[in-house]
Design a protein around this nucleic acid. Structure first.
Length: 840
DNA sequence: GAGCACTGC
């Protein structure tokens, strides 16, 4: 499995004895240096010229909006108070002339809710019927050529525009924002009685509004037990009403609903929807069937500063549409509003300008920029005078300095403390220290109550951190990971203590594995943490590092695309018609080596052919909302040779449902009791067959007993529900793609549990090897496991049922460097199966 | 003997 690359040319890749030609898709060298990730973010340090900043006086007489608000009058006052209110004419006027607007606005400016409402009645936002020329494609999706080599086209009449999409990085944000805006528009989304049965990550959504669906706590909710039928509610997208601006029509639209949302497992797009909140991934998925985004007049990309892989890819596709010839949209431009909480304006402006303007030296003139002040209270920042040797000690000192010297509350409310730490271990150690020290305090000093807050905690435990404290004379201290930086808002916080570090996942292309280590945070992350103290009143932020250290921090975080395996990103591009992935416009380009590794890996998986183009297999793979190796497993499992698709779906559902469905057990006594039940589920074949066993046992358990089933085995109900949703989605996609016969599916209630035979287990593991042959290791004479690919020593992670067990060979689905080089999700295999899986 | 945070028709 060794890989050799021709040193002198980048045009050919060799894998074993195979040669893949890179011609046609590795034609161009990237424009920016790719040797180190940091060089590609070089304009981080370029100060933004102040002349660029649109400064607008805030005299309401001068900028009184020319149009009255519409919608629910009871919400007018709140909307008028938003900083953004005064900018609506300006925003409308900019977008009537230009196609791209970069809008920088801090949290609380109202940009996510107000901007689409300013725009949806604009003339350019109406749906139109136009003639377009479409390329004729053959069955495989390749262009049909006319004589002379030109692509064959045919003329069609299509609808273009009418809808504004607003993208969000998270589901909760998309659904809560849609709910809020629908209410403001006077066309509330009725979300009652919708049994999607699971909720967002935290008790509070991003903007401090409660998330919805499902009830609080970890109990299995029988009412929500039945998951919603896929695709039932997403039929409204195509029925956009012809818009001609008369009042009667407007009223009709209001009855039908102006606002909708579309996130995985949950679609609410009423007929007549003009404003649609979507997750970034959802819009990428839409791009697969509609490359010109014809349904939309505008795309608003919100929270672009978070720089997920999805938003980076989306930006690339949007740039192509905006700066392209627009023939696919019948000449109608697509307007793009890019919204960010932090100013990386130059970079974004340059990115969305056409390359021609760069050559002419008129960079960015097609792109307008507007900055809007936020609504934050001032926060005083206090640094350590010199570097602290021990973070726990520094934390303890600072927390009790605040506690003993600062008031418990003021006219703005409670004055609680939020501490940012790196992980669970650090949080638990700090909790013990603080609680011990609090015992020694004078009884005249107020009491403290400590709440840990990290993702792996149960819903109930997370919820506690959000509740106002009941006891009088007590201060709340929340010890949180990064979860409190973007995902949730803890109310009542007026003091922030920031340790200056966070655990970040980083992919190492050379090793083919990822690491999870604590690293210094960026300036913008530090500022974000500080801001958490100023949501409800003036606050203070204690940074447990020096001002000099702050000055050395990188300006922004490394975007995710430079930190993860680009396998998925490359396949996403290939499937959307990008043959030359290296010349695809990206704000930050991954290292060449990372892209090459991804291409080779995709070739091994059979998603790319020897010519580097996407194969039939690759095209089938992208239809499934799982990573490429899992998609490959599904295709293999549907093959009569392996014939285990339902089993593979059960396993993949469990594994991709967020964090492990098995929660960790904290106390020793609990552990003993839980292990009795868990042991029953475990199989000697390893973790995969254990997951299968768990899912099969779960679905054959009567609804009424499922709560007990989960409780006894400490199964995370939220993740289990997610697993059921994924299972349902993968099953229905398999039927749709003719890999599964709908008739053969039995309702779960009618299936009696029977453990899989060792023969079936073998077929399942062999099907998984089709996606994970690269992630295998063989037992060496010294009793360590050595990877087949790269010859690294790996240890089996303690969370695996095979931890401490020696087998001939193993397959693992995850490979993470933390304390050690760990293999996770491990199965026992035979060494001979590896070669078998690699042979076509 | 160990687990930053998100997400996908």
């Amino acid at each position: 499995m060794s890989r050799k690359r021709k040193a002198e040319s980048g045009e050919v890749l060799k894998i074993g004895n195979k040669t893949i030609s890179l011609e046609g898709y590795l034609t161009k060298k990237p424009k920016t240096a790719t040797s180190t990730p940091s060089t590609s973010t070089s304009d981080n340090n370029t100060p933004v010229p102040s002349t660029e900043n649109e400064t607008i006086t805030k005299d309401p007489r001068e900028f009184k909006p020319s149009r009255p608000l519409t919608g629910d009058p009871s919400l007018f006052a709140t909307r008028r108070a938003l900083p953004l209110y005064l900018y609506q004419d300006r925003i409308r006027s900019i977008l009537s002339k230009k196609d791209v607007l970069v809008l920088v606005g801090e949290t609380g400016s109202g940009k996510s809710t107000q901007v689409p409402q300013f725009l949806y009645q604009e003339r350019w936002c109406q749906r139109r019927r136009v003639k377009v020329k479409t390329k004729v494609l053959d069955k495989e999706g390749n262009e049909v050529l006319e004589e002379g080599g030109k692509a064959k086209t045919r003329e069609e009449t299509v609808n273009v525009g009418g809808v504004i999409a607003i993208t969000q990085p998270r589901r909760v944000a998309a659904t809560t924002l849609a709910g809020r805006v629908a209410k403001e528009c006077g066309t509330p989304l009725d979300t009652s009685g919708r049994g999607t049965g699971f909720k967002g990550r935290g008790p509070k959504g991003k903007d401090g509004k409660g998330s919805k669906g499902g009830k609080e706590g970890e109990e299995w909710d029988e009412e929500n037990d039945v998951v919603e039928e896929m695709g039932k509610n997403n039929g409204g997208d195509e029925e956009v009403i012809e818009e001609n601006g008369n009042e009667k029509k407007d009223r009709k639209d209001q009855e039908k609903g102006l606002v909708g949302y579309s996130v995985r497992f949950d679609h609410r797009v009423p007929p007549g929807t003009k404003i649609k909140y979507v997750t970034e991934g959802m819009l990428l998925q839409e791009l697969l069937r509609d490359p010109h985004l014809r349904q939309y007049s505008a795309i608003i990309v919100d929270e672009i500063h978070e720089r997920s892989v999805d938003v980076d890819l989306l930006s690339g596709f949007l740039k192509q549409i905006v700066t392209g010839d627009k023939a696919g949209r019948g000449g109608i431009p697509l307007k793009v509003v890019v919204m960010s909480a932090t100013a990386q304006v130059e970079r974004i402006k340059k990115f969305f300008s056409s390359d021609d303007s760069l050559k002419k030296g008129t960079s960015g003139e097609e792109v307008e920029y507007l900055e809007i002040e936020g609504r934050q209270f001032p926060v005083e920042v206090i640094y350590e005078p010199k570097p602290v040797p021990d973070i726990q000690e520094a934390l303890l000192k600072t927390v009790f300095k605040i506690h003993t010297q600062e008031p418990l509350s003021d006219k703005h409310g409670k004055k609680d403390i939020l501490c940012f730490l790196t992980g669970q271990e650090e949080i638990e150690a700090a909790q013990r220290l603080i609680e011990e020290f609090a015992e020694t305090l004078d009884p005249k000093v107020p009491k403290v109550k400590v709440f840990p807050l990290f993702g792996q905690l149960s819903m109930e435990a997370q919820h506690e951190a959000f509740q106002p404290i009941k006891h009088p004379f007590t201060r709340k201290i929340v010890l949180a990971t990064n979860i409190a930086e973007t995902s949730v808002t803890v109310p009542g916080v007026r003091y922030v203590v920031d340790c200056g570090k966070a655990k970040v996942k980083q992919y190492r292309p050379r090793l083919g594995m990822e690491s999870l280590l604590a690293k210094p945070i960026s300036k913008s992350s530090a500022i974000q943490r500080t801001g958490r103290a100023g949501r409800e009143g003036p606050g203070k932020c204690f940074r447990l590092y020096t001002a000099d250290t702050f000055a050395t921090l990188p300006k922004t975080d490394l975007p995710e695309i430079l930190r993860t395996d680009v396998l998925g990103a490359v396949l996403t591009m290939k499937a959307r018609g990008i043959d030359d992935v290296l010349s695809f416009p990206l704000m930050d380009r991954p290292e060449l080596e990372a892209v090459e590794n991804a291409l080779v890996h995709l070739h091994v998986l059979g998603a790319l052919g020897d010519d580097g183009r996407i194969t039939d297999t690759g095209r089938k793979m992208v239809l499934f909302p799982v990573t490429a190796p899992y998609a490959r497993v599904l295709l293999a499992a549907a093959d009569p040779r392996y014939d285990c698709l339902l089993e593979a779906i059960d396993i993949i559902s469990c594994i991709t449902a967020g964090d492990d469905i098995f929660m960790q057990v904290r106390s020793e006594e609990d552990k003993e009791a839980v292990d009795v039940y868990r042991k029953e589920l475990q199989r000697r074949e390893g973790d995969l067959i254990t997951y299968l066993n768990t899912m099969q046992r779960f679905v054959s358990t009567p609804s009424a007993d499922r709560g007990t089933f989960c409780k006894q085995r400490r199964i995370n109900v939220r993740n289990m529900r997610q697993a059921l949703n994924i299972r349902k989605q993968l099953r229905s996609l398999s039927v749709k793609n003719k890999m599964l016969d709908a008739e053969s599916l039995m309702p779960d209630a009618e299936v009696t549990y029977q453990p899989v035979s060792p023969e079936t287990a073998e077929r399942i593991l062999k099907a998984f090897l089709k996606g994970f042959a690269m992630k295998t290791a063989v037992l060496a004479p010294d009793a360590s496991y050595v990877t087949a690919h790269g010859k690294h020593v790996v240890a089996i992670h303690p969370s695996s049922s095979l931890h401490g067990v020696k087998r001939e060979a193993i397959m693992f689905l995850e490979h993470v460097y933390t304390q050690k080089n760990y293999a996770k999700k491990v199965s026992a295999i035979q060494a001979g199966w590896i070669a078998e899986a690699l042979a076509a």
